[in-house]
Design a protein around this nucleic acid. Structure first.
Lengths: 352, 352
DNA sequence: TTGAAAGCGCTAACAT
DNA sequence: ATGTTAGCGCTTTCAA
């Protein structure tokens, strides 16, 4: 930083023949400074394109006006929406965002925390990586008195604010919706059961079956959470003879993989097999037929998490009890689960 | 920064009864320091979870080991890939990434530049917003002696390194591919012509027509660059009587909007109308039929841009001539343009 | 081998 | 109304 080119307060003080403190005060509009001096200083600042060195200010004030974000993988539409929400709120409040990607790896997440602490960020937003089992590095954040807010994926055992989805309820809703279409053999393509979201969505699925008066069939609840695994699972189920009349996928890509395979096998969607996904990526609208899915409101989650963090940062007393904010997910019904009468392409998105 | 909790070198010096400079040297493994002192210091540092204050180091060394990124909208898959590539290279080189989103707005972009300069980042990566017409703020970056690299969208008239796609060539390739399928009435759904990419892709389309010996028909080249506009355009064309036998969309969402409408109107894809997109978002694989599209290699663009920036930052002499790196886009052929014999669902992505 | 002092850029209490 | 001084945390030259 401060390549040759950067102007400092000292430079301006020298040019104007005044003390640095005078320049500093003039720049801040301090009332003690004469109008004339103020004018002189401000004109020079503009002419020289002076930019205050916020790093130095940070050192002085022991606050950086910077928040850190640790996110598993930005290329997921959901996470990119969250980041967008975070950036929006941070920008408006005058905070800068330092961005770290854990790539779903524990070692990188640990490193990311170190980096952010070293940068003395004013607060940290974290969505925990899939690999993380030990949460000491996250506890360290709090020990360093740095406000911490989890979003989407929290760390068990760490007391901090968090903003999460009502995964279980939403999964239940999706399942009930399928049952409501008269489906009896509803399958679940589940996410790994060591993940919180994997467990929650499966639990919600089971809740839904029970509420609908259906008996869970273990053969219909399998672990498959990717496009490819879903394709494979469809083939396997077909060969095995136990075939579902509806599928609730743990995420959209899984559901779409299933749909692609179903279509190839000649099944009609949703008449023979209805499908729903989870996490309303834009994929859902684009799929053919368009996919019924659960909108997790990523952008809103980002804004809420950041507001919560800023509140904590800016509050004098940081020891107030922790908040858990639930961002309610919505089921967006499209053509993959309901016969398409009148539902246009692109519906649920915008009229076409 | 430095809430109550943060340990400083001074703290440790006091505890050990030595001078701060001794602690500093011990931490760096300076040879002058006795093995014993070094051990003592390092043990204490670990015990107290000392993290060097990189803000203070930055002030001292006039470099922040931080790079700034200004991106139009992170929610585009392409840009999120680029960010991912940027973060990857930065992380490995020990740099931290400050992230700003212009939201395609000029005023925010100007502000973002200010923020990054104020933070004394060591270098800046920019993809220019659609709205930006005045480039003074970007020139300011260079005037401040801060290395600047453009990616994807460069600013005309500003001499800086850049990493871009061969849009025009790729658009030509896509058009030729359609012509190669025997299509004669190839339409283009173009991006706005005030955008560089809009102009380039249209130029490439025209190049392709000429190379294929086809005569451009103005009625077939329309401005439509979104899902909805594409739907609308299909209806309009159908009503007008001038209907294409192939469509080259300026981006994937546009192409997919067109496909959805075509299917609704009862056209067979690709037999009656072949379609290609641009920018290989994951949408392309997911669409039904899967969409032939141009892969812009976002991740690679991010890594290359960052490597270029770091090279510039770390080179003693920064005045060497500017590089323009072309990341060659690839046409990924899928079912929307070629009759599907043997092409599996999910092909082009991974076997299923 | 270690300590003292100065300075990176900025600000604020304390002079004047 | 303005200048002087000290200090945020760290490093490094110079001195001991």
């Amino acid at each position: 930083m401060i390549k040759g080119g950067q102007v400092t307060i000292k430079d301006m003080a020298r040019i104007l023949g005044v003390a640095p403190s005078t320049v500093s005060r003039a720049l801040q509009g301090h009332p003690d400074i004469s109008a004339e001096t103020r004018r002189l200083v401000n004109e020079l600042a503009v002419r020289l394109k002076y930019q205050p060195n916020v790093v130095a200010q940070g050192l002085k004030f022991r606050r950086s006006n910077t928040i850190g974000v640790i996110i598993p993988e930005i290329v997921h539409y959901f996470f990119s929406q969250v980041i967008s929400g975070i950036e929006e709120v941070a920008y408006k409040a005058g905070y800068t965002v330092i961005f770290c990607q854990s790539n779903e790896r524990y070692d990188r997440e640990v490193n990311n925390v170190k980096t952010l602490i070293a940068h003395r960020v004013d607060g940290i937003l974290v969505s925990v990586s899939k690999e993380t089992r030990d949460f000491q590095h996250l506890a360290d954040i709090l020990e360093n008195q740095i406000p911490l807010v989890f979003f989407d994926r929290a760390a068990p055992g760490i007391t901090a604010d968090m903003v999460v989805t009502n995964d279980r309820e939403a999964a239940c809703m999706a399942t009930l919706h399928l049952a409501g279409q008269g489906k009896k053999r509803i399958a679940h393509f589940a996410a790994p059961q060591n993940l919180f979201i994997g467990m929650e969505r499966k639990a919600g699925y089971l809740d839904g079956l029970v509420l609908a008066g259906l008996t869970p069939d273990p053969a219909l609840c399998v672990e498959a959470d990717s496009f490819e695994k879903a394709c494979h699972e469809i083939s396997r189920m077909k060969a095995s003879g136990t075939f579902p009349d509806a599928i609730f996928g743990a995420n959209d890509l899984t559901a779409i993989g299933a749909m692609k395979s179903l279509l190839r096998e000649g099944f009609r969607i949703p008449e023979e097999v209805a499908v729903t996904g989870f996490s309303d990526s834009r994929f859902a609208e684009i799929a053919e037929p368009s996919l019924t899915s659960v909108d997790q409101h990523g952008f809103e989650m980002g804004t809420l998490a950041t507001q919560t963090l800023l509140k904590r940062i800016e509050s004098a007393d940081r020891e107030y009890p922790c908040d858990t904010i639930i961002v309610k997910a919505d089921l967006i019904i499209r053509n993959s689960s309901v016969c398409s009468k009148g539902v246009e392409p692109g519906a649920g998105h915008q009229a076409c």
